[in-house]
Simulated assay, not measured.
Amino acid sequence: MTVLITRPEPGATQTASRLRALGFDVMLEPLFRIVFETPTTRPIDDYAAVLFTSRNGVDGLSRLYAPSTLSRLTAFAVGDRTAETARQAGFDTCHSASGTAHDLHDLIVSSIKDSEKPLLYAAGRDRTGDIEQRLKASGLEVDLAEFYRTEPSPALAPATITALTQGRIDSVLLYSRRTAEQFFRLAEQADIYDGLGSVNFLCLSETICDYVKGKGHFSCRIAANPDETSLLSLLD
């Protein structure tokens, strides 16, 4: 079975390693490129905690601060893998919501009470959801800082186009609606819709799957939980 990985680097290579270890053939087609930025924030010690909704946010922040500095802060992460990335970056204390942004909101609200310090949301420029607004509505002060942005790929690689046209790709991993939109945009640009009928689209959320179904009669499956382990389990 050949799996097409669409997430940006370095995550694409990490996912490829996981899949190869499980015996799958893989092709890498990162549909976006991560570009890190340096936003203006308060001094890092002025924050009560940092919240992350992606590993890219962790990578963006950790580029700017030494592990010894981050070790003094508490972090909150949307999922276990993001939490593990935060710990590797230097956060000694990192709480994982092991779920969605809604779960992360509830975890933070239940954990932080009567803090006079604000929270720092290490986010990307292109994002879904409004966790910072929901936290503010719950009475917490939140600074939103964009530590990275994503740039779309201009076209599918020739090898990917050939493999899709010849029906050699069994499954495509889709991690966000934006990634799904980009995939179908580039597939249409390459005029290869006819080669997608046999592809299984494996989606991290129902929102992504609904978009895929809206593009045609495509096979689509949804991960039981919004994390990569659940997504990859759809390949079993």
Results as ranks from 00 to 15, higher is better:
L135I: 01
M27F: 08
L19P: 06
L186M: 07
I44D: 05
A86D: 12
T179I: 12
L196N: 00
P8F: 01
L204F: 06
L156S: 12
S205T: 10
S176H: 06
G79T: 10
R42H: 12
G90I: 03
L202Y: 02
L140S: 10
D227A: 04
A155Y: 08
K213T: 10
R87F: 05
G79M: 08
T150N: 03
Y121V: 04
H102E: 14
L119F: 06
L19I: 03
S138H: 12
P30W: 12
A86M: 11
G195E: 07
R63Q: 08
L235H: 02
T162H: 06
A122G: 09
E141S: 15
P39S: 03
T128F: 08
E29C: 13
A86C: 11
L186N: 05
A77P: 13
S153D: 04
G11V: 10
T41D: 14
C94A: 15
T69V: 15
R168T: 10
A224I: 09
E9F: 02
R221S: 12
R177S: 14
S176V: 06
E116S: 04
T53C: 07
S17L: 02
G214M: 00
I131N: 10
L232V: 01
A21L: 09
L135P: 05
K215M: 13
F24Y: 15
V35C: 05
T6G: 03
D114L: 00
Y193K: 13
S153R: 13
S62F: 04
E116N: 14
G99P: 07
L64K: 04
R221E: 14
V35M: 08
S198P: 04
P39H: 01
I112A: 14
G167Q: 08
D191S: 11
A224G: 06
V109T: 12
A223C: 11
L234Q: 02
R127W: 03
G79V: 05
A48D: 09
R185E: 14
F52P: 03
G216A: 05
K136Y: 08
A48P: 04
P39L: 13
T207W: 01
S71H: 07
L156D: 13
G216H: 07
G79W: 06
R18E: 00
L235Q: 03
T53P: 04
R149F: 00
E188D: 15
G99E: 07
P39N: 07
R42C: 01
I5L: 01
L234Y: 11
R33A: 12
L144T: 09
R168H: 12
R20L: 08
Q182H: 07
A187M: 11
F184G: 00
P226D: 03
V172M: 13
T93Y: 13
A86L: 07
T100V: 05
I169W: 00
T53M: 10
L107F: 09
L235Y: 02
